[in-house]
Amino acid sequence: MNINIQTRSSKPIYEQIEDQVREEIASGRLKPGDAMPSIRALAGELKISVITTKRAYADLEKEGMLYSTPGKGFFVDNPDEQLLSEKKNVGLEEKLSEWTKEAKRAGLSKVEARDMLDILWEAED
């Protein structure tokens, strides 16, 4: 599992971790039943506090992305398809909302914004 975090970011570290774990699960790189690194191992890898990794795992468990067995650690759960796609879209919506704010500030019109999207959408294939 490849997690990259930015410590001096406006997005809390635990959220960054959660986003990336969800991505890994949604993409299938993490499969149901896969063992997650322990809270302390992840904290060591990312050079952050265990409080943060504990928080990320706790949130993901509440969502149904992970489950935990006492003494054994955290494992990837079988989140439902709908939940996964909902979560994916929330991330995308947030990004789009931020971009929209910036675009408006830069003086872009809705038409110009749409044009930009059209061009980029075609290009990315």
Partner: peptide
């Protein structure tokens, strides 16, 4: 980045004490 708990002391009293 690695601190787990923070305790803030002022005039001999803990005015803040919680996890990060």
């Amino acid at each position: 980045d690695v601190v787990d708990y923070v305790a803030v002391i002022e005039k001999g009293r803990l005015v803040k004490y919680a996890d990060r």
